[in-house]
Design a protein around this nucleic acid. Structure first.
Lengths: 237, 237, 237, 237
DNA sequence: AATGAATGAGTATTCATTCAT
DNA sequence: AATGAATGAATACTCATTCAT
């Protein structure tokens, strides 16, 4: 019973901070506001957290820890599965499939993955917005966005790379592929979450319409990664 | 001579503020720091600007005014030119060209445009970072990022729309196309500028390598907008 | 068993407070620190003491009560003994002995007394340091140092004065003698205790060397109080 | 004119802080109180000083710098003069004079010196009280009291030691002499200043009576340092 | 145009103390 | 006897802004 009450106050503080940080930014958020929003005594915040920054750190840490591992798990299960089955061959600049069926299979899988990702980021849109904000300021969380690239790290500690590397010892991630992944896959998803409400307000779309639109458009990007498209053949570097 | 000194001080203030806002964010930047960085007396800042926010407003306003009009001009000159010449037909979901030559022509033009855009945003990367930061906070500049979408506004005040509309009275921008343009074209470019230094530090690439990589990858996205690609035919909505 | 634990906690609190007050001063000591040092729950401190100040009061009161009565007892036993025996005659400005033997006797006694005093104050050095600190601040304990002068009070409630007075109805303590006693006897002893550790650290002497040195030097002072020294004859007021 | 006003506010702050620190101690003094007492805006205190502690540091530093150099100058001029003239011979445990006239001369000089010292410390009694207080707390100013012993440092950088050493290459300060000087000369003077008001209140003496009493009693101590007194001969170690 | 001084309203954080169990 | 949670009042320090010159 005691634990429930304690947990409640602490959780209310985290929720209030998340909400306010994502609205006004960390620096413009007053500890007073957090206390009022969370309906707790201001001093209690310092009972649970060392400082205002400590709340931020806790939130960022929680998000990164969860997200990165979830993403890693998923990619490993699906992509790595296809590679091992011999359906998929990742080349430095694009994906290469053995046949049309494999393409179809991959696109279906990736669509489902994107659906889950989009649901996840929208659920966490407040913290993602905070993370995006903080990553734009010099300091502790400056490079936190790059954590989402961990699955593209070209070292043995990355299980995904390890799998591909074991299949093809010459494999490396090309600079272009990494950049593509970051600026045209991760960044759009993150910004989609961060600007979800604003974009909705501007376009007057419903949650579902917006999600659907984003997923459809994402498919185009995914497709353009698939080897065999004549466009890519014409324009490949 | 006095005027030169005055101009210098004012410029030093703007430069200092730009640098500091882009490093620490508006809220975490102190007027004192601006004064020290600009090497001017703190009170002098209030001789040139009404308030700290006034400096920000000036900067944001300058950027948007220039950028949006520059972009508009360029698009109008090039895209609208092709439409009027009958080479290009913009459909709600993708671009449609009359023949391969037109495609080639368009891709060449667009690559040159992208080169200029990338140079421009890198030059303005500090203010863009500030703008991105501020757009993530509720308030005055919240929707400033959407200004970059002005060339996709479906009303008569937009000269680009007007041109297309005059050629095809049934024309509307589809939601998907607008979303695609925002999250997979504008956002990546803006974030490319905003994270230019951070990304460079992480990847150890040179300015030129990074720019080149981004331009190459951007081509893939541009290409995927072009009608005729079998992938898009297969996956179009 | 319960009582033992209780006693332990209370004692740990007093010990912790003594240590911390003497290190940082009362005002700079946090109840939290006391709790941590004493290894008890912060709220438990308020079970045993009314307030932080209450701990201080308890400590100061304990010291003064013990010390003053011990000193009084000793002086009465020894000095008053000699007076009653007719060996010693206290004059307003200095001590006067009937003969060299009495002097010798007195010096021997006083040396032993000083030895005990020095041992006592070193044992209590923490609380003495606290007392010295508090006596320098306006407030409750401001004049507590003067309590050590009680044996020089010129009223009937002081058994020492009473004894001398009964032998010599004209006897009064001269201002000079009181001042001498305070600033050149009590203050040095108190400060010797209060600065014991610091002085030791600076001079690299051992406990015993330091004590010995202080006792030797004290003898010179005691001696200079004895009538007969030509210097005193020349400079007496 | 500007400078005068500025100086005034800054000085008022220092005066107010001195007064309050000496009354309540550093830790119990509130910056608010300083501002009110000094009749300045609280923020102005931070315009002139980095922190509350910075005010204390400034005060302590000022006192030590002045005092130590003044004392050093005086002692060098007088004591060293006598040594050089051959009137005085400092032995590890006490002073040794060539004849009665030299003793007389020395005592007269030292009395005048003490008069000046007493006037000086009473003038500075507030800061001395603060110094005494701070020297009793672990921290930055813990050993500041020992600075007053600098004239007894046995190294070549001390001009007084240097002079004596040049006359007698076997000369060292004995531990007893140093301890005597600290606990029976410096400490009493410092405490005389620190407790001046309190002692006055308790004894109902006037400033002049108190000063006179202290000076007279001090003479006894000075005398006991002079070799030749039969008491010291009897009790010397 | 420039500046040193001044200020009102905050701002994060602390702290002694209390409460409920 | 013991404790985790809670709190009101403060506390040192900050900051954007203004003033007087």
């Amino acid at each position: 019973m005691e634990q429930t009450t304690a947990k409640d106050a602490r959780e209310r503080i985290i929720d209030a901070a998340t909400q306010l940080f994502s609205q006004k930014g960390f620096d413009a958020t007053r500890v007073n506001d957090i206390a009022n929003t969370a309906n707790v005594n201001k001093a209690l915040i310092y009972y649970y957290f060392k400082s205002k920054e400590d709340i931020l750190d806790f939130m960022v840490h929680s998000l990164l820890e969860n997200t990165v591992s979830i993403a890693m798990d998923y990619i490993q299960t699906n992509i790595v599965g296809m590679i091992k089955n011999g359906y998929l061959d990742i080349k430095p600049d694009r994906l290469h499939f053995v046949n049309a069926e494999a393409v179809e299979n991959f696109l279906q899988h990736s669509y489902k993955f994107y659906e889950q990702v989009v649901d996840y980021v929208i659920e966490k849109k407040d913290i993602i917005r905070i993370l995006l904000l903080e990553s734009l300021k010099n300091g502790k969380h400056q490079n936190s966005l790059f954590s989402f690239m961990d699955f593209m790290k070209g070292n043995e500690r990355n299980p995904i790379f390890k799998t591909i590397y074991e299949a093809d010892h010459d494999f490396v991630y090309s600079n272009d592929m990494v950049l593509f992944e970051f600026f045209f896959s991760i960044i759009p998803i993150i910004c989609f979450a961060a600007y979800f409400d604003d974009y909705k307000a501007v376009t007057s779309l419903s949650d579902e319409e917006l999600k659907g639109s984003f997923l459809r458009v994402s498919q185009i990007i995914t497709s353009s990664m698939i080897s065999g498209s004549d466009i890519l053949l014409r324009n490949g570097n």
